[in-house]
């Protein structure tokens, strides 16, 4: 196993995250800090999706649903007891007095999402092609409907507020680094290797006795857990949200980052997240400026999404593997042939 390249890849991917965090600390700018935290949370979400999509080669729409599960589960546990009456008026009495530290709540959210994913997803992993996509889409709709109407724990379609602001840049960056490391390790693990082999040739992999559904299931549960981590962090960063934050729009953005960077590699996921997040912030600023200047009669909205959609389509046509389609960044640098294997 290419441990040295793996370590190198990790270092090269960690570098920009650390550099960004350092720069923000130095600049002491609230705007920059907000962007940096958003970026780190996006990293968690996108790399989390890469764990499933990149290794299993199947598009999953349910990812952001698990982000929502993580966010709501963590919120129910971390909203201070005195806020609960207002934030969650219909909450079950059993949970009313519960208020744990945000970190604990976030981890509990991860556990809840992983459990839900583990229970729900196993039979789904048998499916491929259109059936797999529609079931994952259906799963997203089911999760969304639950968030929308299970008022006891979500406050229904209304905004849930009162989460303590606990996600610092350090925490978000640490989580991003941990997730990158986990994704790299998973990709090189036995499960990851077999999954990738099965993606390229399902029949051959079946022939050597690989049980593909079981492998996919592991990737899916890990991926859902990471999504929930992203959700918990985001919840404790934004402090108030509603179910519509965890639906098709967010799915589209996360998918866009992954596709542009390259779904097959962790490095691609990281690169895509950096590029798209920064481009988004730039375009949002343009939108804001246009709105302030009042050049147009109405509000300028949707410009960023239009740009991202165009970029995604162009990438899939011209460079279907994304920016980093095959090799991790640590393996790219070495162009010398095989000498150090």
């Amino acid at each position: 196993m290419p441990w040295r390249r793996l370590a190198l890849s990790f270092l090269l991917l960690a570098l920009p995250v650390l550099a960004l965090a350092g720069a923000v600390q130095f600049a002491q700018s609230l705007l920059l800090e907000r962007i940096a935290i958003t970026l780190c949370i996006n990293l968690v979400l996108v790399v989390g999706l890469q764990v499933f999509m990149g290794n299993a080669g199947i598009l999953s729409f349910a990812h952001i649903g698990f982000m929502g599960v993580g966010a709501y589960a963590a919120a129910v546990l971390s909203i201070p007891a005195q806020m609960k009456g207002m934030a969650l008026p219909d909450l079950y009495p059993l949970l009313e007095g519960v208020a744990v530290a945000p970190m604990v709540a976030i981890l509990a959210g991860v556990a809840v999402a992983a459990l839900v994913a583990a229970l729900v997803s196993y039979p789904l992993m048998r499916l491929s092609d259109a059936a797999a996509v529609i079931t994952s889409f259906a799963l997203l709709v089911v999760l969304h409907t639950l968030m929308l109407h299970w008022s006891a724990v979500t406050n229904g379609p209304r905004t849930l507020f009162g989460l303590p602001k606990a996600t610092t840049l350090g925490l978000a960056a640490g989580a991003a680094l941990a997730v990158i490391a986990v994704a790299l390790l998973f990709k090189e693990s036995r499960t990851g290797l077999l999954l990738r082999a099965s993606r390229d040739d399902e029949i051959a992999a079946g022939a050597i006795g690989v049980r593909i559904p079981a492998l996919r299931w592991r990737a899916f549960v890990l991926s859902a857990a990471i999504a929930a981590l992203g959700g918990g962090l985001w919840g404790h960063f934004i402090t108030s949200f509603s179910p519509k934050a965890f639906y098709l729009k967010e799915t589209f953005v996360v998918l866009g980052m992954l596709v542009i960077g390259g779904a097959s590699t962790v490095s691609g996921a990281v690169l895509g997240t950096f590029l798209v997040t920064l481009a988004f912030e730039g375009l949002r600023a343009v939108e804001g400026a246009l709105n302030r200047a009042q050049l147009f009669a109405g509000q300028v909205v949707g410009l960023t999404e239009v740009a991202l959609a165009c970029a995604m389509i162009l990438f899939l046509i011209l460079r279907p593997g994304g920016l980093l389609p095959t090799a991790e960044i640590g393996a790219l640098r070495r162009t010398r042939p095989e000498s150090d294997r």
Partner: peptide, 15 residues
């Protein structure tokens, strides 16, 4: 993914 992206493109163009 392209059809999903195209869907988002049209929706946001309308927005």
């Amino acid at each position: 993914i392209t059809s999903f992206a195209f869907s988002t493109l049209l929706q946001n163009a309308a927005l």
